[in-house]
Design a protein around this nucleic acid. Structure first.
Lengths: 211, 211
DNA sequence: CTAAACATACCATTCAGTCGGTATGTGTCA
DNA sequence: TGACACATACCGACTGAATGGTATGTTTAG
């Protein structure tokens, strides 16, 4: 699959480089403002190669969303927040982890598929659905722990693990929007603190074990 | 200021029509994908008139964000959620009101400035700041009631009225993102239910007075 | 030898922005 | 009162610079 030619010696094949470049550029400029030439330049790939791998710019958009889903799910699957034995601890550790990785530039930790979805949810159903699968697929990975925590602690309330899992993603996405609008990453972390507090209230936790 | 000539008889001046058209189109297609010609066509205004009123497309973007801030603040200022005598009731009524106005098509109740901010926060500092002013200006209108409620009920906690007000906006914005990604307005309402529950927990309210 | 993986030049279209014009209202001075 | 200057609002054909996409040729692996 890979072809380390003279002009792209070692660093992956063109397709992957294009997907990585698309991810980085779209997170900064948005989908529409990111041109095919922009992405080719950043990936150090010619236009011919671009259209060899992707039938259209929109096809790249779908592939970028799927690539995002794959890479992030691998990243989160290997993250340390799964370690605690108690499911509620794992859920709270997830929030803490999301907060902890919000470092550096805004474009480095904001969500590609959230950004794309806002922009093209009418223009391209294919891209929108790919973004939706990524977001809700990730939300689904939280459901089991939330449901287990609920059972463990005998919590009753008019909410489901599914909806609470989605709500965590909404808070994250909303935090990103505020952080961008205010040009301050702290705004995203701030909302995660409220989310953490909400969960502790829901599960009747009052002590705080982490920073 | 208005000039009811023969070609634009009665329905407002060109500038306002352009701002309204920009609002409607950008909410559907995003800022970059909305062309000047698109907006002119929708406003039934020529390109000459467009560039007579706005120096550039970006200038329209800034004006659209400011127009949004003005019209929405007037709308919310006149909304019935201010009626209750108790400040906490007013805050909860605000959430209920936001949920109640989420009807019809997604593009009809989602937030223009949230959408724009995600897209152009790097590309245009002017538009970004205008979006920020709109969002945080609106958040600020909630602070007084939140602070009063906190004082009234003697609530102590490691959060401020300011940050909680911002959090309500984050949940709203995040709800919009999920609703777009999942193409289902209910996803936005769902997160508002969690926000409502969070507030009731924070302020130690258990009864439910509304639907 | 074949097919995939590129590269390069090119094309049709679209885009933001321009420019020379017209129509209409307004202030002013004889 | 009327003539003239001037400003604002608007018109729409045009332009140069992208932009997405294509056509055709070349390199490399198996």
């Amino acid at each position: 699959m890979s072809r380390p030619t003279k002009q792209s010696p070692e660093r992956g094949n063109a397709r992957t480089r294009l997907l990585e470049a698309a991810r980085d550029i779209i997170r900064v400029k948005g989908y529409t403002a990111s041109t095919v030439d922009d992405i080719c330049r950043a990936a150090d790939v010619t236009k011919g190669a671009f259209f060899h791998h992707f039938g259209s710019k929109d096809a790249l958009g779908v592939a970028a969303a799927e690539f995002w889903a794959e890479t992030t799910s691998a990243f989160f699957a290997g993250a340390p927040y799964h370690d605690p034995a108690d499911p509620l601890e794992r859920v709270l550790a997830y929030i803490a982890f999301r907060k902890a990785i919000m470092v550096g530039d805004l474009a480095e930790f904001t969500c590609l598929v959230g950004t794309m979805a806002q922009e093209i949810y009418v223009s391209s159903v294919e891209i929108r659905d790919a973004c939706g699968r990524s977001i809700f697929g990730h939300a689904a990975t939280l459901e089991a722990d939330i449901e287990a925590a609920r059972r463990d602690r005998g919590i009753v309330g008019d909410w489901t693990a599914e909806s609470l899992a989605r709500h965590t993603q909404a808070v994250l996405q909303g935090g990103f929007v505020l952080a961008k609008a205010g040009n301050d990453p702290e705004l995203a972390r701030e909302s995660l603190d409220h989310l953490d507090r909400y969960l502790r209230h829901l599960f009747h936790v009052t002590e705080d074990d982490r920073t």
